[in-house]
Nucleic acid binder design. Sequence first.
DNA 1: CTGAAAGCGCTAACAC
DNA 2: GTGTTAGCGCTTTCAG
Lengths: 338, 338
Amino acid sequence: MPKPTTIEIVSQRAGVSKTTVSRYLNGKYEHMSEKTKQRVKDIIEELDYQPNFIARSLKSKKTGLIGVIVSDITNPMSVNLVKGVIDHCIQEGYQVVTASSDEQVSKEKEYVLSMLNRQVEGLVVNIVDYNDYELLKSLAERGEKIVLADRTICESHLDMVTTDNYDMTRTAIKAMYDQGFDIVGFFSSSLLKSNVRLTRYNAFLDESSKYVPASKDLAYLLNNEAEYEPSLRDFLAKSRGKKAAIFASTPMALLNLVSAAHELGLQIPQDLGICGYDNLPWTKLMGLSVVEQPFYEVGLESAKILIDRIKNGLPEGKPKYVELKSNLVLRSSTQITK
Amino acid sequence: MPKPTTIEIVSQRAGVSKTTVSRYLNGKYEHMSEKTKQRVKDIIEELDYQPNFIARSLKSKKTGLIGVIVSDITNPMSVNLVKGVIDHCIQEGYQVVTASSDEQVSKEKEYVLSMLNRQVEGLVVNIVDYNDYELLKSLAERGEKIVLADRTICESHLDMVTTDNYDMTRTAIKAMYDQGFDIVGFFSSSLLKSNVRLTRYNAFLDESSKYVPASKDLAYLLNNEAEYEPSLRDFLAKSRGKKAAIFASTPMALLNLVSAAHELGLQIPQDLGICGYDNLPWTKLMGLSVVEQPFYEVGLESAKILIDRIKNGLPEGKPKYVELKSNLVLRSSTQITK
DNA sequence: CTGAAAGCGCTAACAC
DNA sequence: GTGTTAGCGCTTTCAG
């Protein structure tokens, strides 16, 4: 491997000082004669000289690196988020270091620390557990630039970009009642780790109370696959004689619900209406109504805010909180005739 | 943002020289008194000192960064490949810069160059077009470490990791005839850009010739969605009276084929058997038989080879070519009774 | 066993 | 207009 040309070599060949070459590289042509400028330019091209980024970084403290850590990169939603981040960062001249915490808080922390240690200039994090934010908070207080994407935490001073979970869940529940369902249940994976799920749960309770008395009794918080079928039976018993539907608050809940309904031989939507999060490819194939969240845009916006922070510091001091609008995709699973 | 502690600070506080601290950091305890070692250790912990990676990189020429460029990161197959690369790299102490060329050769080149320019130590590339490899080839000749993942190019001296496309396509075709189909067609997206597709095409021709005369006539190379339905009609006309099946050589071809079959009101597998690449989530839901490629392992293996090259140079000089075994997943779409 | 000093490749005061 | 010089934070000879 021939060792690459340095600014030193270029300056010697051009018969000027390193400073002059450096000035040329940084576009500071103001006080430079057209002649030397041209000369330097020619030599650089001749030698195909590429300035060393590392050396530049050492001086400038700017690595041009942004880190993104998602909870599960094999999840299509996460990928879109990552792509949004990457697309914006590249456009702004940054490169992106990616990692997946695989839903493990320990990995998340490890990656946050190691990325920062490698001097990424900022971090977009799709956090694993909203209870476990001390590290991120203290880092942010120390001046590190961190933006939370999709999954939020409460009382923090971090920038956050997420979607309109509360509003959209209410909208979806309302839409189901409007379609002619008399009773709408709520299936969700555990609320323990996710603020987002909690928000949707509250939205369900708030909206449902407009249509039925004890909406809390219609909400099922499921921890594992085995709980779905019994819960579904229970819900069906409660709604006997009524047009029943269920809102599945997470893709996991949606998948398990559909399987359970299938097991029980239910016809969708005649025997049971279904709607849920998110718009994964298979939901389309199965004609399921879903809430589609703009994950690519969440990534894009997160990167935008992050780079803004990096370039301009913390202008107003107060953290930004952005909620992007989701889209309700109605398909056959909620189409009934009253 | 308080400026981080440097080795200078640590050395002063510990009352030793920077050299000693540096030695400690690099685990060179051989000629170090237990006392100073302990002293340095304490101060480092007290100050929570983190050595600056950039400064280290400048000296050592090692950035600990690996680049991975895939043709389309939103594609589940690519994601698994990326994950394989990331998992192995992190385990080996490297971090991964990710980019997606979105099937554009120009972007691919741009990213290759800019990553190298940012001193990634090596690159895993899932190339866009197998005709356009001059850049990668010349870079490799210059000593850059590059491994091609999944998509290969012919006469090159690059390391490559892919799957057993030829063997598995033959196996799949054979399996279809063995299941009782009398005539098996071949639908593929354009062969222009992909060596992999060409390989599968040849495998089809070779295997088919064992069962039918002019197998070339049964192969359809489709450029856009609109061509699928007419091609399917054409194939059905050719196979009238026979148990017919089609092998779709790419996920795109598979999806379009299924749609076309649906349009024509065909029952799968009674009216038409179907098998294809790859094992995407929706193929399971539709009961389609597919070839499942080990993309995660392709990524893993690519990273392994790359890091080996980085650490040990080019031992034998000859490039490695690794073919990982795919898995034929038989589902209802190929289950007929003779 | 430890330290002084040179230098990785580049940038930026501060001269001239 | 251009060059000299002094670092950025760390590693590594080479002395002691």
